[in-house]
Amino acid sequence: MTSPDTLIHLEHVSAGYGHDTVVHDVTLDIDAGTFAGIVGPSGAGKTTLLKVLLSTLRPQHGTVTRSPALRVAYVPQLETVDWNFPVTVGECVLMGRTERHLGAPSDRHTRSAWRPWPWPSSAERAAAAELLGRLGISDLTDRHIRELSGGQQQRMFLARALVRQPQVLLLDEPTSGVDVNTRHDVLHLLADLHDEGVAIVLTTHDLNGMAAHLPHLICINRHVVAVGTPEQVITPAVLEETFGAQLEVLQHLGMPVVVDIARLGA
């Protein structure tokens, strides 16, 4: 551990599937104040890196250290689940409370003793209702998950993650497949959560809509290309190494805006 605040520490990690190594030699710290975006093209290893952080993928080389009893929550890409599966929004959110003893000792919702039976306790129902209200989808609790729009499905997954009272929230492409308003809302919500002390790491390939608004970026293309603020890493040189394409960077209202010259010319 490099610092007592460090929640997850990756040391020279390489990871992949079978004999293929997708990401090489990643050294990375996630601490309580982290609000970072992992940026890179498709196939760059963004999801692989997330799986290492989640500990669902064992690294091929290097070490992963987590602070003890760390509570991690994960919001997957929308297309990874079967939306025809028979669960209501309420049932889905409560899945986040499968391992129920993990609540923070200070929190009144999660502190209630572990109860083995299937139905939710009144405290769990209250916690779920509060989150759905905060995310603006409380009227959808008894709906089937397929009846939701993409933005509402994303909010439901966020509620399922947050009902775990996580210290670290990991999100895989949280704004792909959702409209501009939802993207805006998700960004604001994540900023609020960050202010409340939740460490946040997300993947994105959306430079202008997402990455430029985050305080910290990790650019990867099978290895870490650059790390820093958007001003530091959204530069033509870094972007060319990350995306393998020549991209122009303009300044607009104090923020970098990436323009694909090749595509503009076409």
Binding site: Y74, G96, E99
Partner: peptide, 18 residues
């Protein structure tokens, strides 16, 4: 109940959730 439901619905996220 919930572990079986979570695993059936979404094994990846279930694994990530402990």
């Amino acid at each position: 109940y919930r572990a079986l439901l979570f695993t059936t619905f979404d094994p990846d996220v279930a694994a990530a959730s402990g």
